[in-house]
Design a protein around this nucleic acid. Structure first.
Lengths: 357, 357
DNA sequence: TGGAAATCTTGGACCGGTTCAAGAAAAATC
DNA sequence: GATTTTTCTTGAACCGGTCCAAGATTTCCA
C-alpha cells in the first residue's frame, strides 16, 4: 500500500531510488552533468525516461536557491493596460528586452483594489519589482517595502532618496516645451493635464495641483507655469484641466476651454495620448492645427508621428527607462540609485506661430 | 554565534519562536486568523511587527500548496511581440482580463532559441500554459507535455485530439472570405500568406503549403482555394506569397505580383497586419483600393477599422479566445477540450466589384 | 605496488512555509 | 464539580529540490 500506486508525478527522490543513486547525484545529473560519471549519468537519464520523470520541478529548486528568475512589473491599472496604452507598451518592450537578455521572465502584477494589490504583491513569485508608478505610487511603494525585495520606481515622486527611481526631469522638460511655444509667439495657453489625484476631473486650481499625489502631472504643470511666468505671463489666467486620458474627459475639458473668450492659441497636453484625443476634437470642431491652435504633447509615442499633423512633443527614452529599471534590479539589487534620463524636444507639425488675428 | 546576527530576514520560524508559539499557530495567524484566539493573534502580530517580519514568503507556501497562482503565456516570438503585434495585444487583453477575474498573475515566457525555450518553460513558475501558437507550435507543445502542467493551444494544428485547443475554423473562414470576393465578381486573385515554415519567404507552391508546419496559414490557403475551385477558378494560376508580416516581405511580394500580367483584382491577405501593409504599398503605388484592387484581411483588429479605406476582414473573437484559454486551464485542468469559436465576415470599404476594364 | 591526488558519490541539513491528527485548554452542560 | 463539547494550539511530517562536507572510489605517479 505504498503511495506509489497513486499517479503522483515522480520526484527527484523517486528517480534516485529507482536508479539506485542518491538524491544529490540525481540532482547533479540535471544541473551539473559534467561532475557525474558518464556511465552513471546515462543510467539515471535512462531511468528518468522510463519512469517518466520530467526533470527537476522549479518549485522545489526555488526554495533552495531563493531565485525565481523573474521580475514583476506592478501597477495599479488593470492588467489590460499593459497592452493598451502606447506609453505602457513601449515601456514594457524595454523591460521585456532587458529581461530576455538576462534570461528572466516577466510577471505582470496589478490590482486596482488595495487589498488585492497587497495580496498580489505579497504572493508574486519574483526577484524584484519594477513599479510602474503612473498612479498609486504610494501603495506600490509601501507594498514593495513590506515585501523586502529590490524594487525600482519609474518616477521620482516625493519619497526623497529612500528608494531607487529612474525617470526624467519633468519640470525641466515641461519648461522646454513651454519655451518652444513662447518662442513661436504664443501668449494664451491652456493645459490639458493628467490625473492629479483620484478625486475627479475638470478645471483644477493651482492648490489642487500642488497637493497632487501624482507628481508627474504636478511637475509638468509646475514646469510649464514656471516658464510662462519667466516670460511675464500671468498664469492665474491659464486654465488647467484634469483629464483621465479618456476621450470623454478630454472632450469635456476642451468644450469648456473653447467656450470662453479669449480662447487659447496654444494647448499644452501632458501626454501624447491626451494630445491625440485633443487633435481629434479640434479637427471635428473645425479648428485647424496648427493654423488656429498649436498643440504639444509629451512622451514621444509612435502614434504621434503618424497623426495629421504629426505632434510636436517631448520625447522620453521610454524603452530605455524600462531597460534600466531591469538592470538596476538585476545588477545592484541592494543599492539605492537614482537615474535621470534626458528628454528631447521633437518639433513636428502641430505647432506654429499663433494666427495673426 | 547563532545565525541571528546575520541580517537574514526573519522567517515564520523566527517569529514563532519570538512570540512563543508554534510555527503552525504563527502560520494560522496569517492564513486563517479566525481560528486563532484574538489574544494570541494580536501578540503574534505585535511581535511580527517588532522583529520586522514581512509575512509568509510565497516561496515557502508554494512548495506546500503546489499552487503558484499564475499562468504562463508561451510563445516563440521575442517577448516584445506581446506588446507590439495588434493580434497579440488583444489576445493578451483577453487573457489578462480572465486572469484578473480569477486572481491569477500572468507570466510571459518566450525564447526563440530552442534550448532557451526549453529551459524557460521548465523553470517557469506557473500553474499552466497558454500556448500562443503563432509559430513553433510543436516546440511549445513538446515542452508543455514534458512539464506535465495543464496547457491549452490557441490553434488546432495537426495534433489530433491529444491536447486541449481553442481556435477557429480557418478553412471555413477563408472560404467565406473568398466567397465574398467571388460574389463581387472577382476572378483574378493573389494570396499574401503568413509563414508556412521557417524556411524563407516569397512565392510558395501548393506543395510547400501542404507541408507547412504552421497550420493556420496552411488552412487559410486551403479554404481560399477550395472556394475558388468551387467557383471554377483554376487555382494553379493564383500566386501565393509567403510573408513574415513585415514591411519588406509584403512589399517584395507585391512587387512580384504586380510585375506580371494579368494583375489580380483581389488580394487575399491572411492577416490584417499584412493587409494594412499591402494597403500602404498599393496607395504609394497609386493603385486605388477598392477601385483598382480589392483587399481583404483576417482577424478584425481595430487598426483595420480606421484605415483608409477601412478593411474588409474576417473577425475572430480574439479576446474571447484568450479568456476561454484561461478558463480552460483553471476550470478543468486535466480534461482535454476543444472549442471552435465563430468568426464573422466584416464588410468594410476595401472591397468592391472589380474594375470594368 | 603503495600512497597521494583527483574524481565521484553519499547522506543529511536546509530552504520557508502548510497541514493535520492529536493533545491541551477553555467553555458549556448537567 | 465532573463531564462533555468546543475551541485552540502543538509538533511533526511533508512539499521537491539544492548544497556541501565527508567518505568512497578511481586514477596517477614514484
Amino acid at each position: 500500500m505504498s503511495r506509489n500506486d497513486t499517479d503522483r508525478p515522480p520526484t527527484l527522490g523517486d528517480l534516485a531510488k529507482a536508479a539506485g543513486v542518491s538524491k544529490g547525484t540525481a540532482s547533479n545529473v540535471f544541473n551539473r552533468p559534467d561532475i557525474v560519471r558518464a556511465e552513471v549519468r546515462e543510467r539515471v537519464l535512462e531511468v528518468a525516461r522510463s519512469i517518466n520523470y520530467a526533470g527537476p520541478d522549479p518549485k522545489g529548486r526555488l526554495l533552495g536557491t531563493g531565485r525565481v528568475n523573474a521580475i514583476g512589473v506592478a501597477t495599479t491599472e488593470p492588467l489590460a493596460y499593459f497592452f493598451d496604452d502606447p506609453f505602457a507598451r513601449i515601456l514594457m518592450k524595454g523591460i521585456a528586452e532587458a529581461c530576455d537578455a538576462e534570461g528572466l521572465g516577466v510577471s505582470l502584477i496589478s490590482a486596482s483594489d488595495e487589498a488585492d494589490l497587497a495580496w498580489n504583491m505579497h504572493s508574486a513569485l519574483v526577484d524584484g519589482f519594477v513599479l510602474f508608478c503612473l498612479t498609486g505610487a504610494q501603495k506600490l511603494i509601501a507594498q514593495s517595502r513590506e515585501r523586502r525585495l529590490p524594487f525600482v520606481a519609474l518616477d521620482f515622486g516625493d519619497a526623497g532618496d529612500t528608494l531607487s527611481a529612474i525617470g526624467i526631469d519633468n519640470v525641466a522638460a515641461a519648461r522646454r516645451l513651454a519655451r518652444h511655444l513662447l518662442d513661436l509667439g504664443h501668449r494664451r495657453f491652456a493645459v490639458l493635464a493628467m490625473d492629479f489625484d483620484n478625486e475627479g476631473v475638470g478645471r483644477a486650481t493651482m492648490a489642487q495641483v500642488e497637493a497632487a499625489i501624482y507628481t508627474t502631472s504636478r511637475d509638468r504643470v509646475i514646469g510649464t507655469f514656471r516658464e510662462l511666468e519667466a516670460a511675464g505671463i500671468d498664469t492665474a489666467g491659464v486654465p488647467i484641466f484634469e483629464t483621465t486620458g479618456e476621450d470623454a474627459t478630454v472632450g469635456a475639458a476642451l468644450e469648456e476651454i473653447f467656450a470662453r473668450e479669449p480662447v487659447p492659441t496654444a494647448l499644452v497636453a501632458q501626454s501624447d495620448r491626451i494630445a491625440l484625443l485633443a487633435l481629434d476634437w479640434l479637427k471635428a470642431r473645425g479648428l485647424a492645427v496648427p493654423g488656429d491652435v498649436s498643440l504639444v504633447g509629451f512622451d514621444g509615442v509612435p502614434e504621434g508621428e503618424t497623426s495629421d499633423p504629426p505632434l510636436t512633443t517631448m520625447r522620453q527614452p521610454i524603452a530605455e527607462l524600462g531597460r534600466r529599471a531591469v538592470r538596476a534590479i538585476v545588477e545592484r539589487p541592494t543599492e539605492i540609485r537614482r537615474e535621470t534620463l534626458e528628454t528631447e524636444l521633437v518639433v513636428r507639425g502641430s505647432t506654429a506661430p499663433p494666427p495673426a488675428s
